[in-house]
């Protein structure tokens, strides 16, 4: 690289953006799994998932959390591809 110092700070900024994204997604992950799916589940069970007979906490634990996990990974994939390009560190084909 022509500008090693510049590329170094750019890489650090890139990694910070990555860490922020990871942090946000993992908070959602933990809240859905351990919050809605476990510790809040008995309380959430007083409601039903709208339009169904699923107790809400039970639905999170046995269905909803899994859907959220899949969505979180694809959100990470899409946003990271964008961040890769913004910082010019994406892989060339």
């Amino acid at each position: 690289m022509a500008d090693p110092q510049g590329s170094n700070t750019r890489h650090q900024a890139y990694f910070r953006a990555n860490l922020t994204l990871i942090g946000i997604l993992l908070v959602i992950w933990a809240f859905v799994a351990f919050g809605c799916g476990i510790f809040l589940a008995p309380w959430l069970n007083q409601w039903r998932l709208p339009g169904t007979g699923y107790p809400l906490g039970f639905w999170f634990a046995q269905q909803g959390a899994i859907y959220v996990f899949v969505i979180l990974i694809f959100v990470y994939v899409i946003l990271m591809n964008r961040i890769d390009r913004r910082y010019g560190v994406d892989e060339k084909d």
């Binding site: 990871i22 997604l25 993992l26 992950w29 799994a33 799916g37 476990i38 589940a41 039970f58 634990a61 046995q62 959390a65 899994i66 996990f69 979180l72 990974i73 990470y76 994939v77």
Partner: peptide, 19 residues
């Protein structure tokens, strides 16, 4: 309901793997 440990436990790890 306690079976959720397997359902979430064996899927949630993929989020950690991916991130």
């Amino acid at each position: 309901a306690d079976g959720a440990v397997y359902l979430m436990g064996w899927t949630g790890g993929y989020v950690l793997l991916a991130l």
